[in-house]
Design a protein around this nucleic acid. Structure first.
Lengths: 331, 331
DNA sequence: CTGAAAGCGCTTACAG
DNA sequence: CTGAAAGCGCTTACAG
């Protein structure tokens, strides 16, 4: 038989209201009473029933993390889980719990979101970018349900979101390589339709121009991000009659292809060719030779997203649409 | 103003008890009434308040997943998250939610577990092996709190657990290589004190002996699982006067070192040397040359753990201590 | 500073 | 087959 607030009240010789007030740190309780009640709580080893608290307060102290959780997601998309860990950290520090909701099996894409909001099983939600579209966005803004979206939504919306600034990462890449004394830099990107790749290229080119360097069209390639195609692209660059001094690889697979090209030509890194990529993946550190890496601390991004949601909970009218978490260089 | 069971009752002209019974599929309700109530529910777009349901039923329909969720955990230990996804899948199919609880910041190791049990915020828990010790085990068994531990606890206990059978994976490795026609097989392991490494070696040796192959002592090495030391171990084996025909690498880092040794000696795989490792890591597939891999479907293991917990919830006296999920060969 | 009482929105014996 | 009523264990105006 679990012990209740009534047991504590009886034992301490006060009312349940008083015990509740002690539990919630009301300052209208006399120190003597408070102390007595606290002691009884310790003696009986009492913990409030969170179901009852949640029901009485009309709030859950729970946040939902909406994302796709398919098999192998953990291997393909470890960043998403690192973000989740960051979110969990701040929330738990503020006594919120975090509940996972998988959107991968939704027949209707807004199914999970609608359910969370109507069942009142959470006070707010963190939505991973993979789980959003225009309809869901409208649903959420109409209900004014507290939320933070991870990742730029890609359409105009009133939604609150945070994202990393990929263009800024591209800038950082250019600045770093320029500071190393390299002016002739090539860029191997993913598909031209890829948002992240395009942003990184944009930032890179902007900074190059700003510093007075021209990047010739034949120094910019687009690939399918496959290892083989990237290797070919890198070989073409390195074997041209005027090879670049450095290569920016838009992602890790491209870096891997570039590694193969560099090995094949037996070039010395960074003496003969420098190369750089974005994001620390589990296998980035085994690349040999090693690229310079521009990384985003996505755990920190999760922390920031969690913090913003807590602020939204206190002040629902807050509108947040921001780029957060600076890229850092791991040379 | 969210609509309640009372609104539905009034609109449908019945009592709240009746609405509740319709909601819970009691068969004592006349079809006519049931239909009328269902229609009202649809019309008003009513969803039961899960806080109230949880409070009235004295159950949460929530399960806690206890594990360490530090920064970079997602990169170092993706398997743990894949298990989590599997657990979430079965639970959500049975209308249970899954809440994350991070044990990495516990000052006292049993802190989180004790809190979960006393606050009654979950009906059961899945505990990742990293978050267990003897004291916690005693706490849980004393309270008879429904749980499943992922991973053999390493001490005698009444706890319910599931694990993968590493010795069986070692057997599978030996059987596969023997079936390829290789009899002279070496084993590069991690530290002699490592449980998993020891189990894999045990299974491997058992099967080798069973098939009548002797594994000479100098064909078994122990390493610190570092790339460099593994490469040296592999080189020593391959350059001995009687090199093995195949090498079993106890983990991916060792496989990576072995890859380097094979490259250095320009050996052809598998014509001159075959090699094998365990577990598909994110970078396993970029190893070149490719090893044969013995993998465990840990997502499936999560599904099984979730299913067992559901069974425990229905039948608390159930005792489960089992090895689950067969290793599979990815050649 | 303290307590009696209403209320949070459901479920479930029990009576009819 | 249906409904009145108690109960789940807290919180919080409100009165004193």
């Amino acid at each position: 038989m679990p012990i209740t607030i009534g047991d504590v009240a009886r034992e301490a010789g006060v009312s349940t209201s008083t015990v509740s007030k002690v539990l919630n740190n009301w300052k209208t309780i006399s120190p003597a009473t408070a102390e007595r009640v606290q002691e009884t709580i310790r003696k009986l080893n009492y913990t409030p029933n969170s179901r009852a608290v949640s029901f009485a307060r009309q709030t859950t102290q729970n946040i939902v993390y909406l994302t796709s959780l398919s098999k192998d997601e953990a291997y393909h998309n470890p960043h998403m889980f690192d973000i989740m860990c960051g979110v969990n950290k701040v929330l738990s520090e503020s006594n919120y719990s975090l509940t996972l909701v998988d959107t991968s099996t939704d027949t209707d894409k807004g199914e999970s979101v609608a359910k969370v909001m109507s069942k009142k099983c959470a006070d707010g939600m963190i939505i991973h970018g993979s789980a959003i579209n225009k309809e869901i966005a409208d649903l959420i803004t109409k209900q004014q349900f507290p939320h933070i979206l991870i990742g730029h939504p890609g359409f105009d919306t009133q939604l609150c979101w945070v994202d990393t600034n990929h263009a800024l990462a591209g800038q950082t890449a250019a600045e770093y390589l320029i500071s190393c004394g390299y002016g002739d830099i090539a860029f191997i990107g993913g598909r031209q339709t890829d948002y992240i790749s395009t942003q990184r290229l944009k930032g890179f080119l902007g900074t190059m121009h700003q510093y007075g360097y021209l990047v010739a069209a034949d120094k910019i390639c687009y690939t399918d991000s496959g290892i083989e195609e990237s290797c070919q692209a890198a070989l073409a660059l390195l074997q041209s009659n005027k090879p670049p001094r450095a290569i920016v690889c838009e992602n890790n697979t491209i870096a891997l292809g570039t590694v193969k090209a560099i090995e094949k030509l037996s070039l010395k890194v960074p003496e003969e060719i420098a190369f750089l990529t974005f994001d620390l993946y589990p296998y980035t550190k085994i690349l040999d030779p090693k690229p310079v890496v521009i990384d985003i601390n996505v755990y920190d991004m999760g922390i920031q997203a969690g913090n913003m949601l807590l602020r939204k909970l206190e002040n629902p009218s807050l509108q947040i649409q921001t780029y957060t978490t600076l890229p850092v260089i791991c040379a």
